[in-house]
Nucleic acid binder design. Structure first.
Lengths: 229, 229
DNA sequence: GACAACCCGATTGTCTGACAAAAGCGAAGA
DNA sequence: TCTTCGCTTTTGTCAGACAATCGGGTTGTC
């Protein structure tokens, strides 16, 4: 309520779109692991659609960077190196700072209200410890943040980046103690935006991402030491 | 020479890829105008490939934002509103500033050398007035700038944005007097990068895009007054 | 026993043909 | 004039087919 996505379960969207969503989710959820090959025939059987729909959906995901196709060898779930992960977080910090600043300076009162509701929900979810509820809340928060930025390109790029972060397959929230910090940081962002303080909002966004990056990259470095590559 | 793309005319790239390039070029060159419908059958005949290849290529372009598909009505070349154009230039300024700063601070000497060569070529092309040579030179400059940033995500996003700028179909260089300024601004960028001055490089990049945006948006505003929508 | 050449199965890339469903358009009727 | 009906066009999707290619295993040679 108050937010209520107007797209009332666009169930009639083309079959291809549904396949896209299914694949995206399968990758995000880690059911398809980075590096894993995606064989057309198998996908057809497991999803129950023809090759046409599968292949077109794969093109979309390829353009989004979620999968990588090698000619005549087919697509694999994209992998992200340590350097790329660092780069990803850098751009995220840049874009989210911008979004936060724009939101603070030009967002509507309605957007701000929605944002604060999302933050409250996130804090509550963090307190009660609901895993999927947490993810949903965080997603809602980011959706709102990007929406409030008022820039469709920023929104699209950040969405793509967010999807790719999941390729690292550690939500960075799962690190002990990180969650509480995360809640605080997000409250800080919302407060700055509510205050209409652009500079402060940008700084808070950057800080938030930089912290997440630090945790994620530390973790990556540690595991890759044991993991070889 | 010195630059020499190592991908020796990847002529064997899948047919679909070639179709993508052809369509991209057709849109960039203005042969397909924004708002125009793209009918599969016509594309098949004019390009000479089956529907499969066409459709998959269209998915890719859709993901890139060059075309927009409506269910059961097919794709049309994307249109950009005045507000979106303004947003596009904002993000471009943000990302190119970042790229310039990173380039200045972390780019290799080799990259810097290539950049300066590209600038020289651009200046020369501008002086001799070669249209297609100018475009090629500008493309080379930007490719080098993005390459030097060392961030694959920035590179990808800027490429996408550059492609979409062409949807406005006025290169902004075509404005009288703009070209000379453009050359100067680009020299400024290269100089700052060569000096390893990150802040100055970022500022020069931002200035360059802001100027281009101003010209483009003024032009858009003027024509849209007469044009209705 | 190691290494090169070769062959074969699996998979992709692409075309053709087919058909239901939906959108847009024009004609017929109220 | 406005609504409704039906037709045409185009899209969305499937099935089947086949050449090209890749990877791996096998064979043969030194």
């Amino acid at each position: 309520m108050g937010d209520m996505d107007l797209q009332i379960a666009r169930q009639s969207a083309t079959l291809r779109t549904q396949v896209e969503d299914k694949l995206r989710q399968a990758i995000s959820s880690g059911r398809f692991k980075p590096g894993q090959r995606l064989v057309e025939r198998e996908l057809c059987e497991s999803i129950g659609v023809g090759r046409t729909s599968i292949r077109e959906a794969l093109r979309q995901l390829e353009a989004e960077g979620l999968i990588t196709s090698y000619p005549h060898r087919g697509p694999v779930v994209s992998t992200i190196t340590y350097e790329e992960a660092a780069q990803l977080y850098s751009v995220r910090a840049l874009l989210e700072s911008y979004a936060g600043k724009e939101f603070a300076e030009n967002g509507t009162a309605q957007d701000i209200h929605t944002l604060n509701e999302a933050v409250a929900e996130f804090a509550e979810a963090a307190a009660s410890g609901g895993g999927s509820r947490l993810i949903k809340a965080k997603t809602a928060f980011y959706d709102c943040l990007m929406q409030g930025s008022g820039n469709v390109f920023v929104k699209q790029m950040l969405t793509s980046l967010h999807n790719r972060v999941t390729l690292l397959r550690m939500t960075s929230m799962t690190q002990p103690g990180r969650l509480n910090h995360s809640v605080e940081e997000i409250k800080e962002i919302a407060a700055a935006i509510t205050d209409r303080n652009g500079a402060k909002a940008a700084a808070a966004c950057k800080y938030h991402i930089d912290m997440a990056a630090k945790v994620a990259l530390d973790y990556l470095r540690k595991t890759s030491e044991n993991d070889g590559d």
